[in-house]
């Protein structure tokens, strides 16, 4: 479904400095209806990769092929239409919603932008907003509220509803839970899981939280300093990491079994 081949991104530095290679020859392939996890620390190139996939950033080299079409070959108009098929949920639900727009307007906006493909009139859009809010666990009473009237988890649900409004096939989840409380994280993860089943979505799940990745993803790639160091089925990577970096990451993971926790003092 999504093929990334030899993707590189170089940010030129100011005069005198060498600049940064944010991505070095990254290749990935994501198949339909799977959850693909991309794990890396801050500055490893995760965000650059998503920006390239979303077409917000032109890659320096390599190609991104979505459903058999090279994104670089698309005309601006075709790229606009393509954006409906690849949507994103952002990390920070406090920053990613326009504070001056109501929940209704936020969720309806993508449908207005893509009215040529969706062909919904105002009434139909509003109906669909209610449907979408219901789908993510919000109700009609939330329609005309502003982002600051919602909790972090609710805001993230609005962000998810916005992304789903144009019937995307691929959803990029850019650390969708890392800004949330632990208890709310679980709710949002369960919601994402249920939505994937129901809407047959493909997820590209980006995170630095291995616990979350293990819970959600079928296959995983580890990215370090712009390079993929390891990729494979989630079970294999977590049980038998093949790279030094992978072993280090797994070793740093907190132990879910309380009996084996280093904080547990023998009684």
């Amino acid at each position: 479904m999504l093929e990334i081949r030899g993707l590189s991104k170089h940010y030129p530095g100011r005069r005198g400095s060498k600049g940064v290679d944010a991505l070095k020859d990254v290749s990935l392939s994501i198949t339909k209806r799977e959850s693909f996890g991309l794990v890396g620390e801050s500055g490893s190139g995760k965000t650059t990769l998503t920006r390239c996939v979303l077409g917000l950033e032109p890659p320096t080299a390599g190609s991104i092929i979505f459903d058999g079409v090279d994104l670089a070959s698309l005309s601006p108009a075709a790229m606009r239409a393509m954006r409906a098929r690849i949507q994103i949920v952002f990390q920070d639900p406090y920053a990613s919603l326009n504070p001056r727009m109501t929940a209704h307007d936020i969720v309806a906006e993508p449908m207005i932008v893509h009215r040529d493909t969706l062909r919904l009139d105002r009434r139909q859009r509003s109906d669909r907003v209610v449907e979408l809010l219901d789908l993510v666990g919000l109700g009609e009473q939330h329609l005309h509220r502003f982002p600051h009237e919602f909790s972090g988890g609710q805001r993230q649900r609005i962000g998810i509803a916005r992304a789903l409004s144009v019937n995307p096939e691929l959803l990029v989840l850019d650390e969708p839970t890392s800004a949330l409380d632990v208890s709310v994280q679980a709710q949002v993860l369960n919601l994402l899981h249920a939505l994937q089943e129901r809407l047959h979505l493909t997820y590209l799940f980006i995170s630095h939280d291995l616990g979350v990745i293990r819970y959600v993803c079928d296959r995983v790639a580890l990215i370090y300093r712009g390079e993929i160091v390891e990729q494979g089925p989630a079970g294999d990577i977590f049980d038998r990491p093949g790279s030094d970096y992978g072993r280090m990451l797994i070793a740093a993971m907190p132990e879910p079994d309380p009996d084996r926790s280093p904080f547990r003092t023998p009684a």
């Binding site: 979303l54 917000l56 606009r80 949507q87 990613s96 906006e109 993508p110 932008v113």
Partner: peptide
């Protein structure tokens, strides 16, 4: 950025 990703 979100609006740009939508295609606005």
């Amino acid at each position: 950025q979100a609006a740009r990703a939508i295609g606005a």
